[in-house]
Structures are given as structure tokens and as C-alpha cells.
């Protein structure tokens, strides 16, 4: 039977808590080349949004591709997206690997 291709989903996280509340692993030049969500903390904005899951891979943050970004740079892009007052939300493009 055909294997469905993983589909990317756009998830909008409202900044309705003091913390984003995710832990990520991975980045360019590691075994996990794109950041993967490994923890979602209760009470954080990510948890409140209800659409992010452990195991999802983050492809883009506010339209910025994380492909080729090393771990620290990917983490910085996400942290800055949460910190900026220009937007009350962060858009994550994620997919769930098969």
C-alpha cells in the first residue's frame, strides 16, 4: 500500500504565556539535521496552542527556513521570534515524520 508523504502543517502559537515552553534538539551537522521538538512544557504558549507535538520537525519559523541552520542558530531564531514585540504570535511550519 502507498506510504503517505509527510505533510507540513502551519501552526500559529499565540504568545499568551511568559514562556514558549518547548525544547528542541538537532540542527545542521548533527544526526538530526532539522530541529525536532523533544519536550512541550505545560503552561507554556506552545502547550496552550494545542497543535504542537513532541516529535514534530520544525521546517520554518515565521517564514524563515531552518534548513542548514546549526542548533544554536535555530534556537536563536525561535527565541527571537518569541521575544519580538512586533508580533503577538509565532508561525511554525512543522511536519510529523512517518
Amino acid at each position: 500500500s502507498p506510504v503517505p508523504a509527510p505533510t507540513a502543517t502551519l501552526v500559529r502559537v499565540l504568545k499568551n504565556s511568559n514562556t514558549l515552553g518547548i525544547a528542541i534538539e538537532g540542527g545542521a551537522n548533527t544526526r538530526q539535521p532539522l530541529p525536532r521538538i523533544v519536550t512541550i512544557q505545560k503552561g507554556g504558549s506552545a502547550h496552550n496552542c494545542g497543535q504542537l507535538r513532541v516529535g514534530q520537525i520544525i521546517l520554518e519559523v515565521n517564514g524563515i527556513s531552518l534548513k542548514g541552520q546549526e542548533h544554536k542558530d535555530a534556537a536563536r531564531i525561535i527565541a527571537e521570534a518569541f521575544k519580538t514585540k512586533e508580533k503577538d504570535h509565532i508561525d511554525f511550519l512543522v511536519f510529523e515524520p512517518g
Partner: peptide
């Protein structure tokens, strides 16, 4: 035969 992993594991960052 076991595949050799050449890339290192990643650190984890809490955001």
C-alpha cells in the same frame, strides 16, 4: 553490518 554514525548528536535547548 552496523551503519556507522558520523554525525554527532545534538544538544538540547529549552526555549
Amino acid at each position: 553490518r552496523e551503519k556507522r554514525l558520523t554525525l554527532p548528536p545534538s544538544e538540547i535547548t529549552l526555549l
